[in-house]
Design a protein around this nucleic acid. Structure first.
Lengths: 214, 214
DNA sequence: AGTAGAATGTGTAGTTTTCACACTAACAGT
DNA sequence: ACTGTTAGTGTGAAAACTACACATTCTACT
């Protein structure tokens, strides 16, 4: 077995990714159930160790794809977690990322360290392994900040064509309060990040125009 | 000589700190001149490797104090720099911090790896070692964002008592454009982060009221 | 065919916030 | 006392934001 030796102690460096998806109007979080101790059988954020030839963004992308089968369009590095005792196995620095993925494209894959993977709404999330609860809280706070600055941040959650009502529902789910329909439409139309399609979603109501990211 | 061995390769983890001070109305950046290769004799950001028992914030605080003698009130972790080839000596992840310190309290100390330390205005900053130019650019961008959100972010730059004119000058230096005096005063007074003192700064003009952080 | 139900889509007025702008006040130095 | 210098103060116009109500258009059912 090869080993890697250094003159000074080095922490392991990992990325942990808060992967959110929108299903049935509610935000869902991808969790994996740990297969081994510490925290065996606990639910945790997906993530993994940085490899020698990749940078942190590449690591987060790779882990996201390994866990969900989705290649996320944009990922956001939002904090580091570095308390010396945050992992009982030894020193691990975690670089935390936020990724938004489309529910329809997700293929869950139980990974190497993960016995099981599942989507959970926030109310179904219990106590997580390590300090992953803190990471999740920080992610949601950051998400709300980003979304308030630009509702278009949410676009990766939605399918290629969607109604404004669905975008508004995602917006309300992330900032935590309802907004006026007309004001919201004005906001996103003026932001210029959407393109109106000529298709409509039909149902037992007036057809709703479909939009796509510009 | 002891060595530290692991089953997988690990990057070294360091913090690099963009330490800003306000001198004579202009922002200045603390740089150290490197004593050894790579980039021997180049100017670089102060920084250093994470120690085993400290978290990243503590590392950044320790390095700041070692270089300036100042214990910064608040430090801001704003990005990671992790390109595999960013340091020719090997894999080094840099966690970048921003620290604002009071000019009056600074005692420059040439550190272990630093042959020399000095404050530079931005126009005097040439090409920096490693990717420190990128780090600096990211820091200034983040600083402008923070300051626009709350001018009180700048308070650590100023002495314990200061005039509104000096705060305004610092504000203008960071966001890069002048602002109206009356509007600025209204802004900071309403923000509630200042306390009006009963002292005045005197000079060949009407005395200027002094303020302190609340 | 007619009707009920359900969600879409649209304009405006009141309020708040932002921005631009000019003069008087008080001191130090001569 | 006179001059130069910076401090300190209020208002009106424009823009941005917020709240709010009703007609439209489809499906499904009777």
């Amino acid at each position: 077995m090869t080993t890697f030796c250094y003159a000074y102690p080095r922490p392991a460096v990992a990325t942990d990714i808060v992967i959110l998806s929108l299903d049935d109007g509610a935000l869902r979080l991808l969790l994996v159930r740990r297969g081994a101790d510490p925290f065996g059988d606990w639910w945790a954020l997906p993530g993994g160790f940085l490899q020698e030839t990749e940078d942190l963004d590449a690591c987060a992308r790779r882990e996201t794809e390994e866990e969900t089968g989705v290649r996320p369009g944009r990922i956001l590095q939002f904090a580091n977690f570095s308390h010396p005792d945050r992992d009982p196995r030894g020193r691990v620095i975690s670089v935390a990322y936020l990724a938004l993925v489309r529910a329809g494209e997700v293929r869950l894959q139980a990974g190497t360290d993960a016995a099981e993977a599942d989507w959970r709404t926030f109310s179904e999330v219990g106590t997580l392994a390590f300090d992953h609860g803190d990471i999740l809280a920080a992610a949601l706070s950051r998400l709300a900040t980003e979304v308030r600055a630009d509702p278009g941040f949410l676009l990766p959650l939605l399918p290629p064509a969607f109604t404004l009502a669905r975008l508004q529902a995602a917006y309300e789910a992330t900032i935590g309060r309802p907004v006026d329909k007309r004001n919201f439409r004005k906001l996103v139309e003026e932001s210029g990040s959407l393109r109106a399609l000529d298709d409509f979603e039909r149902g037992p109501h007036r057809p709703a125009r479909l939009y796509a990211p510009r």
